[in-house]
C-alpha cells in the first residue's frame, strides 16, 4: 500500500515578482510502506524544497500530496497533524536544540502532540533505547554534548514523535567518518524497531548505496530517475550528465572492466566489493 503519493508537485518561489523560479516542477512519485528512499541531486536541484512539502511546511503551488491516501491540504487547519505523521530532520538539526536538559528536548515534539505523564516518559525512554542515548545523558544540558552527540539527540527529538515517515535532509553533513557511520546506524536501528518509511537526502553516494532501496534523482527541480538503487547506479552515464556520480567503488570496478579485467558492474558497496574480489582471487588460484 502506498504510504506517500506525490502528484504533479510544482513549487514556484517569488510568485508575483520578476524573479519567478520553479524550485520543483511537475514531480510525481509513490513510496510504499517501509521503503528507504534516497533523494540525490545537485545543489539547488530542489531536494530541500521537495521534502518541505511532505510535512506541509511549504504549500504546493500546484499538485497534490497524499499520505495514506489522504490529501494533506484537505483541511489546512489540521496541517499540524501531518507534521507528526511525517517527521522532518533538517540539515544541522543540532542548531534547533534549546531545552535545559536532553530529556526535555527530546520530549518537546511528543509534548506538542499532546502526550503527557507516563506515556510521554515511555516514549522518550523508548527512543533513547533504540538509538542508544544513555540514561546519564538525559539530565545533561544539550549544549554540553559534542557535535555528533548533539545531532543524535536532535534526531531523537524528531523520532520521538513516532512518525510514519521520517525524512532526513543531509543527516551526515559535516561529520567525520565515524559520526557518519553512527548516524546511518541510528537510522537503520530506528527503521528496524518501528518499520517506519525513511526518506534521505544525501550527497554521499556511498551512504545511499549502503542503505537505500530506491533512489529519486532530481535535476533543476525535475525528476530525472526514480528506480531501484542498483538500477540508478548502473546508469552512471546519466548521473554524470547532471553532475552526479556513482559510488567510488563502482568507479573503481568500471575502470577495472575498461582495463580488461572481467569484473561484475553491479558493485556499489565496499562489502560487496570485498566479496567479489575474494571470489575473483579464489577463482584465480583455482585456475
Amino acid at each position: 500500500m502506498a504510504i506517500l503519493e506525490v502528484q504533479n508537485l510544482t513549487h514556484t518561489y517569488g510568485g508575483n515578482t520578476p524573479f519567478i523560479n520553479d524550485a520543483v516542477s511537475n514531480v510525481s512519485f509513490t513510496v510504499e510502506q517501509g521503503e528507504i528512499i534516497g533523494i540525490i541531486g545537485h545543489t539547488g536541484s530542489g531536494k530541500s524544497t521537495l521534502v518541505q512539502h511532505l510535512n506541509g511546511l511549504l504549500k504546493p503551488t500546484d499538485g497534490k500530496i497524499f499520505i495514506e491516501q489522504k490529501n494533506i491540504w484537505d483541511n489546512p487547519k489540521e496541517i499540524r497533524l501531518v507534521r507528526s505523521a511525517v517527521g522532518l530532520v533538517f540539515q544541522y538539526p543540532e542548531y534547533q536544540l534549546f531545552e535545559e536538559t536532553v530529556y526535555d528536548d527530546i520530549a518537546f515534539g511528543p509534548k506538542n502532540m499532546g502526550l503527557e505523564g507516563e506515556e510521554l516518559d515511555t516514549r522518550v525512554r523508548e527512543i533513547c533505547k533504540i538509538i542508544g542515548v544513555r540514561d546519564e545523558y538525559l539530565t545533561k544540558s544539550p549544549f554540553d554534548l559534542s557535535g555528533g552527540e548533539k545531532r543524535r539527540v536532535a534526531i531523537a527529538g524528531v523520532m520521538a514523535m513516532n512518525p510514519k515517515i521520517i525524512v532526513f535532509d543531509e543527516p551526515t553533513a559535516g561529520l567525520d567518518p565515524r559520526g557518519r557511520e553512527d548516524i546511518i546506524g541510528i537510522i537503520e536501528q530506528y527503521r528496524k524497531a518501528t518499520g517506519a518509511t525513511v526518506i534521505i537526502i544525501s550527497h554521499s553516494m556511498e551512504d545511499m548505496a549502503q542503505i537505500t532501496d530506491k533512489l529519486l534523482v532530481l535535476s533543476r527541480g525535475e525528476l530525472v530517475m526514480f528506480d531501484k538503487t542498483e538500477n540508478v547506479f548502473k546508469n552512471g552515464e546519466k548521473l554524470r550528465e547532471i553532475g552526479l556520480n556513482v559510488p567510488i567503488v563502482t568507479r573503481v570496478f568500471n575502470k577495472l572492466k575498461e582495463l580488461g579485467v572481467d569484473v561484475p558492474q553491479d558493485v556499489f558497496t565496499v562489502e560487496r566489493a570485498v566479496e567479489v574480489l575474494k571470489n575473483l582471487k579464489e577463482g584465480d588460484s583455482n585456475a
Binding site: L57, R83, F90, Q96, F108, G109, N112, M113, V158, M161
Partner: peptide, 9 residues
Amino acid sequence: NAQKARGAD
C-alpha cells in the same frame, strides 16, 4: 521551520 516540524504551534 525546524521547530514547526517538531509540532511547535
